[in-house]
């Protein structure tokens, strides 16, 4: 009777459904199948989801920060590498943009210093002073920083204390470059010779009239000129003395055009030569420049 009453109230399908739901509920609590299924699904779609959220954001910031540092360190290293290969201070100067700097060993700087023309080197820093600094053993590195008009040079001890600092401006370095390789220009294009340009025959004729000591004074390194394969057409004399030397510019004709090679001459000897070329007896300071007609090149 009671069973019949219950059967009339609850259908079999309802009981089955309730049993299934109960079984599913118990199974979930024991086997965690919903979490597992959902978790497996999420894991399978992981690659398609966005890299968002704190950890990814932090990762991106880390990557970006690392690349900034990589760039900074890389640039610095590349600059150092180029600086190590530089054969002269002029070359080094050309490598650096204003504000950029490189660190060289003391030995490397000494090598570059030795390649400077003696007058310029002396003007920059006395070789005896450099010897003293090297001898004391405190000078370990040299920091060179490009400014808008030259190089600031700092001689450093191991703790980075500056032992000496000095400026090397662009102009004498450009002069040094002319002396070592020459530049593709005419004498008129170089301000230092303007108004003091002579035909080569006249220069050499006057030179041959001088005594041996004077000739050595005008051209302490004649072998540099002998090594030039092209014809020397004109000679320019600077009237600015630097450390007892003045600059002589030799314009040569090359297949690629005119080129000026500079050499230092002792000021007293050059002034005597100039007096002779200009028909004056006494050697002294610079007097009248050549007439424009004389100065015109071939």
């Amino acid at each position: 009777m009671a069973v019949g009453r219950l059967r009339s109230r609850v259908s079999l399908s309802g009981v089955l459904l309730a049993a299934v739901l109960a079984a599913a509920g118990v199974a979930e609590f024991r086997l965690h199948w919903v979490e597992s299924l959902l978790g497996a699904y999420l894991a399978s779609t992981n690659a398609e989801r966005p890299e968002s959220g704190l950890i990814w954001e932090q990762g991106r910031r880390t990557q970006s920060a690392l690349s900034v540092v990589e760039q900074l360190a890389g640039d610095r290293e590349a600059q150092q590498r180029r600086a190590r290969n530089a054969a002269s201070l002029g070359e080094l100067l050309a490598l650096l943009a204003p504000g950029q700097a490189v660190m060289l060993s003391a030995e490397h700087f000494r090598e570059l210093y030795q390649k400077l023309p003696p007058a310029l080197a002396h003007e920059l820093l006395s070789p005896f002073e450099l010897l003293r600094l090297a001898g004391e053993g405190r000078w370990s590195r040299t920091y060179l920083e490009r400014s808008s008009d030259g190089l600031m040079i700092y001689l450093l001890e191991p703790g980075n204390h500056v032992l000496r600092q000095f400026r090397l401006s662009d102009a004498p370095l450009a002069l040094a470059a002319r002396r070592s390789e020459g530049v593709e220009r005419t004498l008129e294009q170089i301000a230092a010779f303007r108004g003091r340009i002579y035909p080569a025959e006249r220069f050499f004729a006057a030179l041959s009239e001088l005594g041996e000591e004077e000739r050595r004074g005008v051209l302490p390194q004649p072998e540099r000129l002998l090594g030039v394969a092209a014809q020397i057409v004109r000679v320019g004399l600077s009237d600015e003395a630097l450390g007892g030397f003045v600059e002589l510019g030799f314009e040569i004709r090359t297949p690629s055009g005119p080129r000026v090679l500079s050499l230092p001459g002792q000021d007293w000897a050059v002034w005597r030569l100039r007096a002779r070329m200009e028909g004056r007896r006494e050697a002294g300071g610079p007097s009248s420049p050549l007439s424009p007609a004389d100065a015109r090149g071939p």
């Binding site: 540092v69 900074l72 360190a73 450093l156 703790g159 980075n160 500056v162």
Partner: peptide
């Protein structure tokens, strides 16, 4: 930087 490459160093000069 983390690998020991110098990014900057102070010169001590007055």
């Amino acid at each position: 930087d983390s690998s020991g490459r110098i990014l900057e160093e102070r010169l001590i000069g007055g």
